[in-house]
């Protein structure tokens, strides 16, 4: 296993970075390029940029900000938001993104995963899943960018993970919705269940509030841990976090 990855996630709206609590009440936290540069300099291993309203508004993300980011950083980054066709993905990759992350459009048309994996390789195709614990099971939610449009996708999370892996998804970002933005820790049981259902890397997402939350996710087998609030609000420094994880005996890139 490579070094455990620390992945700041930047939610993007109109080319600006925003952050919400439980997917609501988004506030502007700054310029996208400034954030990208800052995180790369601080030792982030990878970045993810989500255009949070693209899918709900039925459009693809704007490649112009993808190119602005690609110019300034020398670490990998994934982009997400309304990528619903081979051409949408090609535009993002041509603009300099390393991976595309798909979520709602893959639920609408699972063959999209197969197409992207065939044409660009599995290592370019990340499947984002918004998953909710419900009555001892895990279910997939869709169109989560806006609370008014969020709905059940009609799928169990573990079945969806298996199907997506079969179709060629190269990585899973598991976002446990109930925990998002509330900083009480990743949902470890949930994350473990998904790791057991797939052979591809799984990135834990949703709920990070303290360094030991990251340790817990990595001990559970996550390849990476994604967080937004704690990094945007400077509650945790990435270098400090890596020192802590190193002291816990985990391999991190420093």
């Amino acid at each position: 296993m490579p070094a455990r990855r620390i992945i700041p996630c930047l939610d993007v709206r109109d080319g600006r970075v925003v952050k919400g609590i439980r997917f609501r009440d988004h506030r502007d936290v700054g310029d996208i390029v400034e954030h990208a540069e800052r995180y790369a300099a601080e030792g982030a291993d990878e970045l993810v940029f989500y255009d949070i309203t693209a899918s709900a508004e039925g459009r693809s993300l704007d490649p112009s900000w993808v190119r602005r980011i690609a110019r300034v950083i020398d670490i990998p980054f994934a982009v997400a938001g309304g990528i619903r066709s081979r051409d949408d993905a090609a535009r993002c990759l041509d603009a300099g993104a390393d991976k595309v992350s798909i979520n709602s459009p893959a639920l609408e048309r699972p063959a999209l995963i197969s197409t992207l994996a065939r044409d660009f390789g599995s290592q370019c195709v990340v499947l984002g899943i918004d998953s909710l614990r419900r009555e001892g099971d895990y279910v997939v939610k869709q169109y989560t960018g806006d609370v008014a449009t969020t709905r059940d996708a009609g799928r169990g999370t573990l079945d969806w993970v298996r199907e997506a892996t079969e179709r060629g998804a190269g990585e899973i970002v598991l976002n446990c919705i109930a925990e998002d933005g509330v900083r009480t820790g990743y949902d470890i049981a949930h994350t473990k269940a998904v790791i057991a259902a797939t052979t591809v890397p799984v990135i834990a997402s949703g709920g990070a509030g303290a360094p030991d939350h990251f340790r817990d996710a990595f001990e559970a087998g996550a390849s990476g841990a994604l967080a937004a609030t704690v990094f945007h609000d400077r509650l945790i420094g990435i270098q400090d976090l890596k020192e802590y994880l190193g002291a816990c005996g985990m391999e991190v890139r420093r």
Binding site: M1, P2, A3, R5, D45, E46, S122, Q123, G170, E171, T198, T199, V200, P201, V202, G221, S223, G224, E251, R253
Partner: peptide, 15 residues
């Protein structure tokens, strides 16, 4: 070949 604790693709920073 993937194995428990060793996912494939090999994705990330290796020494």
């Amino acid at each position: 070949e993937p194995a428990p604790g060793r996912p494939v693709p090999h994705m990330g920073w290796s020494r």
